[in-house]
Write a protein that binds this DNA or RNA. Structure first.
Lengths: 154, 154
DNA sequence: TCATATTACTTAACATGTTAATGGTTTGGC
DNA sequence: GCCAAACCATTAACATGTTAAGTAATATGA
């Protein structure tokens, strides 16, 4: 017991890991959505991209990454795949050749509209299992948490 | 109005995606922990494994995966890496050769004990930014959500 | 206007997420 | 004891997460 020996805080209980708690909750939710994603032959991230593009016209890659909570290297690969399967299209921005503008295609919209009802059904099931008020409160709490963390991120 | 065409529910607002809300919150939290993980040359998942093994003696691979919220293929690769760097050890279970028992090594414990204070400092910062009561309430809500979803997962 | 820095996206490299398949081990029925 | 079924971990294959490096286009300033 020397140099730097403050009273050795006991190790935090493993059940009190905030990243783990958020991950476990997210996994429990995703378990409800994965079957229909698989049925449509699309990944969770690909779905997020289509979902973000829907009804939004042309979106820059950087902005799209922010909307989908994806890093740009991941998004780059995902867009290559979505473009190859004809669900989105890309073109350089006329005013600034560095930027890329992404648009959802008709096929992309069609896929979205076919799966959306299945997704909505799962949301109803989740709200029934947990309570709509508690879900609403959870959205609110999570938003506040993000705001608090971003505001103070030294 | 025929077969299946109910009145076309409007597309859910993209801000009301529960997986996204949980992901964004988790990312905001992880941004606080990543610097020290990097400093110690370890990934988030490797940390979770060491964290789960600490003070637990020998743990079976399957049980460890459950504790860490990892799938067994991922855990298999992670353990190979941790074993190669001397942070854990593995051996087949004497009573059942199918099972593998994992133990944290002295070096693993040492790494854990060196980083733990940095992690705790971040927890204090998060509680200060958001409020300890709200964090506690969030743990509780997330646990309830998982329970509700698992109980009703048809 | 020219060199420099900055910006936006992409590639590269390695680790993990996810599903399916493989390969030993053990269990159960017979 | 024998064989099929179930089990556990690992491997395989492809997609994404993460950080660093690369590339082309634009902005900046002397």
């Amino acid at each position: 017991m020397s140099e730097g020996n403050r009273p050795e805080a006991p190790m935090r209980d493993f059940s009190r890991s905030l990243p783990m708690a958020l991950l476990k909750a997210r996994e429990a939710v995703m378990d409800r959505f994965r079957p229909s994603l698989r049925e449509f032959g699309i990944t969770e991230q690909q779905w997020r991209v289509l979902r973000a593009l829907y009804g939004r016209g042309e979106v820059e890659t950087g902005a799209l990454a922010g909307l989908c909570c994806l890093l740009t290297p991941s998004l780059s690969r995902i867009l290559k795949h979505l473009e190859a399967t004809g669900l989105v299209s890309r073109r350089p921005a006329p005013s600034d050749q560095r930027r890329t503008l992404v648009t959802i295609s008709t096929a992309g919209r069609a896929l979205l509209e076919r799966r959306a009802p299945l997704s909505e059904a799962q949301y109803r099931a989740i709200e029934e299992a947990f309570g709509k008020e508690r879900i609403d409160a959870l959205y609110s709490t999570l938003g506040d948490l993000v705001e608090a963390l971003e505001k103070t991120n030294s």
